[in-house]
Amino acid sequence: MTQINVRVDGASYVDDVEPRTLLVHYLREQLGKVGTVVGCDTSNCGACTVHLDGESVKSCTVLAVQADGSEVTTIEGIADGATLHPMQKAFHEQHGLQCGYCTPGMIMASIDLLKNNPNPSEHEIREGIEGNLCRCTGYVNIVRAVQQAAGEMSSTTTGAQA
């Protein structure tokens, strides 16, 4: 067992973990952060995407011990109280989800995309979420959601949102 200190969605945790514990399993099973889900074994699907120190990672392909001393943000930590993150709102308003299983990872990947490219083209959006698989939507409405969020985030703030 290795002791880790990690901040997740604004709260600090100290835990003992086995080195082999994947970050996603730590989040789900030790912290109860079950909003982040597991969809595959090979880091293809991206359902488990979270932000580690501000960058998107696939939490099934990071060890929990590697998050020691780091800040993790999950789908459960991006809304401002009752106010949805613009990306969450956009996924809702553009019907960018159906079953919702890929949605946490898709939203986290999309936020990361806009952080690096606030005004992406359709092609750049599709490229930016290529590591996240959705089986329900055919992606058209996800692309629209990211476009909507990009518009709102660039018009309502000057970088604070990202």
Partner: peptide
């Protein structure tokens, strides 16, 4: 190479 999240690591 792979996708943005993988490229971060």
């Amino acid at each position: 190479v792979a996708d943005p999240a993988v490229r971060h690591r």
